[in-house]
Design a protein around this nucleic acid. Structure first.
Lengths: 148, 148
DNA sequence: CACGTACCGTTAGCAAGGCTAATGATCTAG
DNA sequence: CTAGATCATTAGCCTTGCTAACGGTACGTG
């Protein structure tokens, strides 16, 4: 049974229900795959945001990651203890704090990403080019939807 | 900017990295959308498994949901307190327990699913038919991958 | 200049939900 | 009949989310 042709149920409601199930399953599967050595998903997320967008305040990070400020404070502190980020004071506003990656943090982003994505990448490499196209397209749609 | 044509990076590794980000974001977004009244994702998952596969032991449920047995015991007990499932003794093996949906549980599956999917369904209804095709295709691929 | 208000990050404390280790009951092979 | 395996549970820990409340800083207005 292939994936695309005859299939009558493409209504928003049907796709939505199926999609939720798929997302829950794959999330758990990914979490299960994460090695002992790796950072928890959320902390790794913070590193990648900093890597991508540069230094940032805890507040912005919290908003970006859809988490409340106190949660972000704690996560950032953990990363500070691990030596992966550092907090420096804001140039003009002493209320604010600037969080940025250390060199160790930069290295960690690269290494962890490689290690972490190994399983998923392996799975994807068993798919056809067309199937990967589908997932790549889905990525963009999901990101778009998540942004609202 | 459309979603499918010019874009050179379709390697397993690239898609994998992007996909992980997309999955994390949408999961958080979905969780944020879950109303106060709804069951937590995990508990709802148990109900749907029972609805789909019929009565089951806690052990099988744990395996199916990729969770350790003690975690499942606790989750099931919560559902028992809510009156959504019941535990009955196994016909021949007194070590085992059989978990099954109550009538209230059956009703809850239908109602919660409808309520819960409302937000996602609404988002999907703003997409084009082609985009929904992509997500529907992605569903199947993700389920397949998650099954390994 | 001074003072009230708003903003930013943090601290304190709670809840959910995952885990491991250890226990108790039951089953089954020998 | 006994020893080991299997199943669920209990106990206790850890992570990570939240809200409420606080302390310091910035800034507009009188």
């Amino acid at each position: 049974m292939s994936s695309s042709s005859r299939r009558s149920s493409r209504s928003p409601a049907t796709v939505g229900g199926d999609l939720r199930v798929a997302l829950t399953r794959i999330s758990r599967r990914l979490r299960a795959e994460r090695g002992e050595a790796d950072l928890p998903e959320g902390q790794f997320g913070i590193l990648t945001v900093l890597h991508k967008h540069g230094e940032m305040s805890p507040g912005s990070l919290a908003e970006h990651e859809r988490v409340r400020p106190p949660s972000m404070t704690r996560a950032v502190n953990t990363l500070v203890e691990l030596g992966l980020v550092e907090k420096v004071e804001h140039a003009t506003d002493k209320r604010q704090v600037v969080v940025r990656l250390t060199t160790a943090g930069e290295r960690e982003v690269a290494e962890t990403r490689r290690r972490r994505d190994a399983w998923l990448t392996k799975q994807l490499s068993t798919l056809t080019v067309e199937e990967r196209e589908i997932l790549a397209g889905a990525n963009e749609l999901l990101i778009r939807i998540a942004a609202r």
